[in-house]
Design a binder for these strands. Sequence first.
DNA 1: CCAATAGTGTCTCTCAGACAATATAGT
DNA 2: ACTATATTGTCTGAGAGACACTATTGG
Lengths: 302, 302
Amino acid sequence: MGVVESRGPSVRAEREVPAAERSQLASYDPRAYDPIAVTVDVVAFTIRDRSGALGADGPLGRHALHVLLVRRGEMPYAGRWSLPGGFVRAHTAADGTRHEEDLPQAAVRELAEETGLAASDATATATVPHDLGRVHLEQLGTYGTPGRDPRMRVVSVAYLAFAPDLPDPTAGGDARAAAWVPVDAAAVIDPPELAFDHTRILADGLERARAKLEYTPLATAFAGERFTITELREVYEAVWGRPLHPGNFHRKVLSVPGFVEDTGATTAHGGARGGRRARLYRAGTAGLLHPALLRPTRERDA
Amino acid sequence: MGVVESRGPSVRAEREVPAAERSQLASYDPRAYDPIAVTVDVVAFTIRDRSGALGADGPLGRHALHVLLVRRGEMPYAGRWSLPGGFVRAHTAADGTRHEEDLPQAAVRELAEETGLAASDATATATVPHDLGRVHLEQLGTYGTPGRDPRMRVVSVAYLAFAPDLPDPTAGGDARAAAWVPVDAAAVIDPPELAFDHTRILADGLERARAKLEYTPLATAFAGERFTITELREVYEAVWGRPLHPGNFHRKVLSVPGFVEDTGATTAHGGARGGRRARLYRAGTAGLLHPALLRPTRERDA
DNA sequence: CCAATAGTGTCTCTCAGACAATATAGT
DNA sequence: ACTATATTGTCTGAGAGACACTATTGG
């Protein structure tokens, strides 16, 4: 039985409409209207060592969540930081050949173009997360409020990208510079001056990432091919912005079926200042975590 | 402290780019490319009595989840069922006045236009759910694969709408007919012949709705202003497609802070064939459910 | 009174979190 | 030895699900 019962009495309330009524608005030509530009913006997250004088030894250790930002070289918002992004390309060549980019493709291209970060290409459907090399990409949401771009009407499809420690970016495209910038727990409290509505997009992306760590094995996308339980915990701590209990986390992760697989190997050395060698794991096959790893102390409802 | 440490050493890896490198691709004119049309599609769900010969007395009682579909009157896919939707309007009038529609606005307009269902207007941000009268609207996702519309490149922003038992729709716009069609658990298994990629959009919307019932008070959007715990349970049963334990559900709902509020009143009569009168509740103020109402027996992982 | 529906009590099992204890490695 | 890190054990309380029981109401 299909989703739609299109036969017999199960479809009720269907009412044919007289042709007269049908004629108005029946044909709509989008070219009679102003064009709407379609862009993609990318919220790319990675975990890397906290650097610089600030918080180098914060309560959460050396690891911090970083987001990829570019400094805009063009108007509007020239000189401001923004998320990497740009127009989706679709054009017909002189010989009539169509050249059309899928949305995730455009996201990957912008990422590569504006930062010099390499990535394979994408072919999956818009809402299905997929891997590009070691990069996990998924759609975040679409932002199309009139006026969000002073130049014209722009509808922007935002993507989330998660990757293990990536190299420093190389600016390109119309970005004057690109950098991994640490994301703080204060992200939503005291927003920086990002271009357009990118402060909100970043906040939405951060919340999405935090939520997905709870019920998907997404955290393994931030870790290397093989990782220790402690490294996995550091991913959670960096994204959630709070320390977790090492013992309970360890037991919990191993108790979730399909989350991680034991490789049998261990790290070559113990900790720098002493300590046991840690077992190495790889990502398991589970698509969802059962039971989920819920964020601690969520006493903040409404 | 802001999300971006834009001062001093905390932003590392920033590298200025020589002007020569910067010039290429620096300015991008979207009008040099083929236009991309932007549309909205709406997945509107409601709970209503199952009708017709099929499944009138199924294992889940009389109530079933229904989705609003329209029968297309125009090419392409003329005569096929599809989700209500259409182009986002943006144009400059002769006197230079800009007339631009926000995305949620366009969704509401399409809903009203193609079905005759009334609704207030929308002003919130793209990704923030908001109410329009008794209708709850939220963004589902964006579908822009090249070729999904044979006429031209179309990027469609899909919205989810939830409403309590709505009246039968009246076709309008370029829809030849409109109807509430029952959504079966088989939705994803044996998809019907919906136009475009609407079968997938519907499946995505269904899964989103099922998931949101777990951790948000969304179910109250399907119920009337005042409702009994049994009615609320019937919403969950209809959306999840499986029966729930009445006693445990009752206790659970009342134990979640802010989910429902007692009105003090009860139903005027007991059940048709006897039974106690039920207390009447209204929606509470909680935005999230703690603890969540998890779907039963989710033994279906990967 | 009998059947049907609303609402409550009880028991068991799982799981999160606090805390403690053991195992192993570096210095 | 002494310290640091990994890993495992124990206990307690919250909550889900099974099941039984009480409270009302219509016929």
